[in-house]
Each structure stands twice: as structure tokens, then as C-alpha cells.
Amino acid sequence: MLEAEKEKVIGSGRSSKDYWKEIWEARELFWILAKRDVIVRYKQTILGVAWSIIRPLITAMVMGFAFGKLAKLEVDTPIPYILVVMPGVIIWLFFSQSLQQLSLSMVLNSNLVTKVYFPRLIIPFSTILLGLIDMAIAMLLFVGLCFWFHFVPDWKIVFVPLFIVLCYLSVFGVGLMAAVLNVKYRDIGQIVPFIIQFGYFISPVAYVTDLAAGKWYYYPFILNPVTGVIDAMRWAMLGDFAKFNWISFIPMLVFILLTFFVSIRFFRKHENSFVDHI
């Protein structure tokens, strides 16, 4: 059998066909790395998974209070303001967490990068599970709130998984590029938390996009891909509350198409030199 086995050639420059095949062959590793991140997350905590409920709940309550009551944004909403905030909070937590995990992924796994070979793309890919689980738990929380406020979302809620995929795709490209740059320039590790900190004020997390409509800054505002996702989520989750906003949706799709392929090319170009810089 050995004679029949295909010869593998290690040299400079590899074919991309084999690369995707290798990624497929490493799917068990992907799964186990993803599981590792999840298991490790709440080790040595008392509340454990409860944190995944506490975080979105407290965030939504604080925002509902600050923006709804103090900033008096709740006066013209027909549904409880906390429900308006929820899709924003869910998306924002998913987005920011994924961005953070992605950008740090290569550096955090440097012990693997320097000692074992496997397609490196597995590492950033494997960070997705953690965010997805948190997202699923936050969705349950939303369902709970719906019961509490006797609010019934309509059929459009079936689009939610699609928008979650779009949200991940929109963060993936940026996160992947940040991960590559972070290998050589650790400044990225400083910039990302900073972006996350202010990004949430320029995205319609705790307010609605309509507030900006008609203003001069409306067009730069809707270029933010997170705006597109949150608008779409509000449309899907909140019944008749929001209309579908194509003006923010299309820039998001363009953003995804651009960053996704560019970032994968960028990653492929640099992954072989990670070990020399990490």
C-alpha cells in the first residue's frame, strides 16, 4: 500500500487546491480547538455559563435605562425599549467578541504555530464557536424577555440565522487581517479593544438608525457593516417595529465581499512567515 501512496512535496510555495483539502482534513482539529476555547472559558468560575446570560442582560438593562430613560429615546417606541436594545446588544457582543478573539488568535496559539504544522487558517476559524454559543444563549434571553413583555415576533424571525452568518462574515475579514498583523505588530492588540470601546457608540446598538436619517453624517454612518447587521436583525426580530433598511444592508454585503477574499489572500501570503515573527 505504501508504494501506492501519493508523494508529498515540501518546498517553497504550495498549491492552493491542496490547501483547502488540508483544511478539510484538519476538521477534527478545528472542532477540538473550538471546544477547548469553550471549555476553558468558564473554568474556575462560580457562575460558569450563567455569565453568558448575565453579560447581555446587564448590558441591555443599562442601555435601556441610559438611552431609553435618561436620553428619553423610548418615548416614541411602541414596544419596551429593552426589546429594541436587545438585537443591538446581541450583535454587538458577538461582533466585538469575535473581533477580539480573531485578532488575538494567532498570537495566543503561538505555541502551536512554532511547533506543529497544520493549515493555520484553522486557528482563526476555530474562534467562532465561543461567540456562537454566547449568541445562542443571548437569543434564549431574548425569548424570555418576549414572554415577559408579552411580545410576539412574527415569521421574519426565521431570517435570524442568515444575519448571524452575515455578521460573522463581516467581522471575519477584519479580524483575520488583524490576526496576521498582530503577529508582527503587537500594536493591533492595543487598537482592537479601543475600536471595540468606541465602535459601540457609532453603531446603532442602543439607539435606532432612523435617528441619523436625513443628517449629513447618515451616509458615513451606514457604511459601518455592524449598522447593516443590526438593522437587519431589528427587522427580523421585532415584528413590525422596523422596516428593512437596504441603504445599510447593501454596504454591508459589499464590505463582506471585499474583506473576506482579500483577507484570506492576505493570510495565505503571510502564514508561512508567522513562525519567523511570532
Binding site: 505504501l2 501512496e5 508523494e7 508529498k8 512535496v9 515540501i10 518546498g11 517553497s12 510555495g13 504555530v113 512554532t114 511547533k115 506543529v116 504544522y117 508561512n272 513562525v275 519567523d276
Partner: peptide
């Protein structure tokens, strides 16, 4: 395969 050779190749069976 942790790092690539600058020149040359290795055939693995």
C-alpha cells in the same frame, strides 16, 4: 513544515 525552505524540496512518502 513549520517553516518553508528558501530553496530545494523534500519528497515525503
Amino acid at each position: 513544515r513549520i517553516t518553508e525552505p528558501t530553496h530545494g524540496s523534500i519528497r515525503v512518502r
